[in-house]
Simulated scan of single mutants.
Amino acid sequence: MDLGPVEYVVIAFPGNRFNGEIAPELQRLVGNGTVRILDLTFIKKDADGAVSYLELEALEPDEALVFRDIDGEIEGLFSEQDLAQIAEELVPDSSAALLIWENSWAATIAGAVRRAGGVLLEHERIPAPVVEQALEAAG
């Protein structure tokens, strides 16, 4: 099986204001084969600094409702150390969504590179503001 590049993101929500607007976009990306969700975990830190960790299946039904149609293999790829480190960086009264996805759109080219004996030497994301500035300068 070919496997595309796998990435993770940590998205913080100051004031624990997660409204679920991200879920429909994740559903669209999964539905059209752009990404495959491998892990999704939530961290909540209350105003006193107490931390709780929630996997998708442990969310309250009303919280999990926005993710009900997201297909994925929620497997616990984040380690306890990963979660503790991210929780430490969160300010009190905030939360974070931790997401690991495979860029499934790139699986076939990644497989072809591997079968051809190619080795990935470097992969880096260029921040959107840098690209926007370069495009404006070139335009």
Rank of each mutant, 00 (worst) to 15 (best):
L40A: 07
A50P: 06
A50M: 00
L38V: 00
F78K: 12
L83H: 05
E75V: 11
L65H: 10
L26A: 04
R36C: 10
F78S: 05
D46H: 10
V51K: 02
E88T: 00
V30A: 05
E73V: 08
D71S: 13
I22L: 13
K45I: 01
N32G: 12
I70A: 08
L26V: 01
V51F: 10
L38R: 11
L29H: 03
D48F: 01
Q85N: 15
E80S: 15
Q81M: 08
F42Q: 10
L65S: 11
N19Y: 02
L77S: 07
E88M: 06
E57F: 04
P61V: 10
R36Y: 01
I37K: 08
V35L: 08
L54R: 11
V51Q: 05
P92A: 11
A64I: 06
I43D: 01
D82I: 13
I22Q: 10
R36I: 01
R68G: 14
I37L: 14
V51H: 03
F78I: 00
I37F: 07
E21T: 07
I70G: 10
L29F: 00
P92D: 13
L77M: 06
E25F: 11
V66R: 10
V66P: 03
L54E: 08
T34H: 03
E21I: 10
I43W: 00
D62H: 13
I86T: 12
E88P: 01
L26F: 07
I43Q: 02
A84H: 09
R28A: 07
Y53P: 00
G49P: 06
D82H: 06
D62P: 02
L56C: 06
G49I: 13
E60A: 12
V30N: 10
P61T: 13
P61K: 14
E88K: 06
A64P: 08
E57N: 14
D39M: 03
P61F: 09
E80K: 14
E73F: 01
E88N: 07
N32E: 11
P24Q: 14
V51I: 13
E63F: 03
L38P: 02
A50F: 00
L26W: 06
L54K: 12
A23P: 03
R28W: 04
K45L: 10
A64W: 00
G72K: 05
G72R: 05
R36W: 06
L90C: 06
E89T: 11
G72V: 02
A47Y: 00
L65P: 00
R28L: 11
A87P: 03
V35K: 01
D62R: 04
L29R: 12
I70V: 15
L83C: 08
D39I: 07
A47L: 05
D82T: 15
L59G: 05
G31I: 02
D71P: 15
V51E: 01
E63W: 00
A50D: 11
E21V: 14
L90I: 04
E89L: 12
